[in-house]
């Protein structure tokens, strides 16, 4: 199969930014900033961005451009015995996209509901009770029946993913021209709408007022590094795959810097959009802003719809915009996860790429059905916790150690500098060899100790074990099997 290339540099950057920017930029970053020192959080966040985020992007872009293949082959290039790590990275991503697509399906459902503001006066009851049909917490681990509207949305999501990537970088390059700028434009509209509402400045005050004492708390620094690490689509093999489609002579360092800065910029804009309307909600209810602050799906599907219903005019219009924004933010991240998988296996498949991707999307749709059931949210929550808290950090840790100490950060740095708009110095080696492994190692240990001390989320122990260690062990076993079975090298 001929190796494809991006049409131009701008398209590559858009694709990389589209992958990095996801729902977390809107529903995670603002909350993390607010609860970790407000405006003061920006200082550790920028430190983490420049010390870990951008260096890791440079690392993955360099690997992709060097090897011009997916993550397994890139790891094999570093050391043959670590090919499994590449498989493990893309299998983690493949698991995540199965339930990420379900969240996209919720966005589709809510986009339709936006036209009539169907969530009515009580969005919480509507979301958990009617839309998800969520089983009581005591029944966590049961599936219940499939929720048909979610299933339909899931099918639409997978068709959209298929259409986005079936022609590889050609189709991805066309899709990102719309799905990356559009949510940014909508974000600007939502910020303007938000800051012109009464109470908005009070909300923004909670987001931006700095509490510099928080900087003395190590947890705040860990939160900043975690946010940067999870937001950049690092550790899935995505950036390796995307960079593998760069032609020889392409820039690496500046592309990584721009992708990192744009991801952070969009997260910051997300904070402005969210906290301005939270201020309005608090004003309307006559309560303090902290009483209405939420994050995650609760923010997107309960709090934000509540606010949308309260808007003085054009409520449906802004609702439609909001959910189009979530969909377009999420779709690039979703299909980049599938693309990372396809880039890893395309050397080993004998059928046409389009047919293979159709099969992958169909299988992923089927695997996603359990998450579309009445108990699906509980499974989604537990699996996501373990894959991100352990699997992803583990990949990032080993990846930086392998590049830093086995391949040699010096060699990678020189490779990146050769064709880049600006050169990086030895500080990059220090970051890859010491700072990133130490921080990711500390995060891994902290998460491990927390898991031993307390069962996650109050869910049954068996559910934690099955969705956590057992699932990770299965992915590791498959990774080892694939690296043994598929020996065709680079």
């Amino acid at each position: 199969m001929d190796h494809q290339h991006w049409k131009n540099r701008g398209v590559f950057i858009l694709a990389a930014v589209g992958s990095a920017v996801g729902l977390g930029n809107v529903w995670r970053f603002p909350y993390i900033a607010y609860s970790n020192g407000g405006g003061a959080f920006l200082i550790p966040y920028f430190v983490a961005l420049f010390v870990a985020g951008v260096p890791l992007l440079i690392l993955e872009f360099s690997l992709g451009r060097m090897v011009q293949k997916g993550a397994p082959q890139a790891m094999e290039y570093i050391k043959k015995e670590f090919k499994w790590l590449g498989w493990f990275a893309i299998l983690i991503g493949s698991t995540i996209v199965v339930y990420y697509a379900v969240i996209m399906s919720w966005c589709f459902g809510y986009l339709i509901y936006s036209f009539t503001l169907k969530w009515g006066a009580n969005p919480e009851t509507f979301f958990y009770g009617k839309y998800l049909g969520l089983l009581p917490f005591e029944k966590a681990g049961h599936f219940g029946g499939v929720q048909i509207p979610i299933l339909i949305g899931l099918a639409v999501t997978w068709i959209w993913i298929f259409l986005s990537i079936f022609k590889g970088v050609d189709s991805v390059g066309k899709v990102v021209l719309v799905t990356v700028p559009l949510p940014v434009l909508i974000l600007v509209i939502l910020i303007i709408r938000g800051v012109t509402l009464p109470g908005a400045l009070d909300g923004l005050n909670y987001f931006l007022s700095p509490n510099f004492k928080a900087l003395l708390n190590p947890d705040v620094w860990i939160a900043a590094f975690s946010q940067v690490f999870f937001s950049m689509s690092i550790g899935f093999g995505i950036m390796i795959a995307y960079a593998s489609y760069l032609p020889d002579g392409s820039d690496i360092n500046n592309n990584a810097l721009l992708a990192g800065l744009l991801d952070a910029l969009i997260a910051f804009m997300g904070g402005l959009a969210v906290f301005s309307v939270l201020g309005y909600l608090a004003y309307t209810k006559g309560v303090a802003v902290p009483e209405v602050v939420t994050s995650g799906p609760g923010l997107a599907f309960i709090t934000y719809p509540t606010i949308l219903s309260l808007l003085p005019f054009w409520a449906q219009f802004f609702s439609v915009l909001f959910f189009i924004m979530l969909l377009t933010l999420g779709i690039d991240s979703a299909f980049s996860l599938v693309e990372a998988f396809v880039a890893g296996v395309e050397d080993y498949i004998k059928i046409k790429r389009e047919t293979f991707i159709a099969i992958v999307c169909f299988v992923a749709f089927i695997l996603g059905i359990p998450f579309a059931t009445r108990g699906g949210l509980y499974y989604l929550d537990v699996i996501d916790h373990y894959l991100t808290s352990f699997g992803l950090i583990f990949v990032g840790l080993l990846e930086s150690i392998l590049v830093g100490w086995v391949l040699g950060s010096n060699q990678v740095r020189e490779f990146a500098n050769l064709t880049s708009d600006f050169k990086i110095g030895k500080w990059w080696d220090i970051s890859i060899k010491f700072i990133i492994p130490i921080i990711l190692g500390a995060m891994l240990i902290i998460n491990f100790v927390n898991s031993i001390n307390k069962v996650y989320g109050g869910y049954p122990l068996w559910l934690n074990i099955v969705a956590g260690p057992v699932w990770i062990a299965i992915l590791l076993t498959i990774s080892l099997y694939l690296s043994y079975k598929l020996r065709k090298g680079v």
Binding site: G39, A40, N205, L208, S209, P210, L258, L261, F268, D421
Partner: peptide, 30 residues
């Protein structure tokens, strides 16, 4: 909004927007 909040707003905007524009300048100057 407090003075501190305004300062952080300007600080973040300068770093993020300024940094992005500078990066784009580096990319297109050749």
């Amino acid at each position: 909004m407090s003075a501190g909040a305004w300062i952080m707003l300007i600080f973040a905007t300068v770093i993020l927007l300024g940094g992005s524009l500078f990066s784009i300048y580096l990319a297109i100057r050749k």
